[in-house]
Design a protein around this nucleic acid. Structure first.
Lengths: 125, 125
DNA sequence: ACAATACATGAAGAATCATTCATCCTTTAA
DNA sequence: TTAAAGGATGAATGATTCTTCATGTATTGT
């Protein structure tokens, strides 16, 4: 087997555990709603109501998706008064997000791109 | 509204179109099987049979997942003889993958980490 | 105390996904 | 030509997922 393909030895290059962790994180970013939320948070902390208005979805849906992001440590909530301020959990996350956005901006253009060359709005790095 | 949260002006920081594209790409990496495949390809091109053996899943399942990766431009197939050599579609992808792996390696340790500090095996950069 | 605001959460339903099974196509070997 | 190897693909099925609806809890305002 593997007649000229390269080494195919013993331990896998990416352990199954890591694969699962990575997939899990990617999953959290695999829905447009959640990515849009992350996109908004990229510009600074937002309350659930802010997000709900900006996204044009139901408050319940936003909360549900925020929960997913929370459970995956992508965002953190800080409660002040009766509202909860959501923010990216750390700059590490925003780095990953930017990398991903950059990737998304470079690959396969749908022919009718009218947005910024990379699809980013005004983003504060 | 938005009483001290920051700007909440007009155009979204991440367009809906980009969010969809990004989510789409992330989706392709949101299953452990596909991540493991990518992990193997990180070490070099592999045939479907190679992957099937290394992964311990059925050939059909591997082909199905390869298709997803293909349709998302994450891998490319080159046919030589009666086998198909799959490889990461470009180095750009492997960059993103490494970034993601790095992220996965740093966040929340499941308490029982026995792998390399970052969970990577022998990986050729 | 009462009402309204801000969020969270459980249930339900439609849609989507990953895997297996069976089958088909193509290419090499006998 | 026949058979086998290497893959791809459609159908079926069980498991997840996203959204809406309804309702619950905590906090502020009057």
């Amino acid at each position: 087997m593997t007649p000229a393909t390269g080494a195919a030895g013993g331990e896998p290059p990416v352990s199954e555990a890591v694969a699962e962790r990575l997939a899990d994180t990617m999953f959290a970013l695999s829905s447009p709603s959640r990515v849009r939320i992350m996109g908004l948070l990229l510009a600074g902390p937002r309350s659930v109501t802010d997000l709900t208005n900006a996204l044009g979805m139901e408050q319940s849906a936003v909360s549900h998706q925020l929960r997913v992001l929370r459970e995956h440590d992508l965002v953190r909530a800080e409660k002040t008064g009766r509202r909860r301020l959501y923010a990216l959990s750390d700059e590490h996350v925003s780095t990953l997000l930017h990398a991903a956005l950059h990737h998304a901006g470079l690959t396969e253009r749908p022919a009718g791109a009218r947005q910024q060359p990379d699809g980013l709005g005004t983003v504060a790095w």
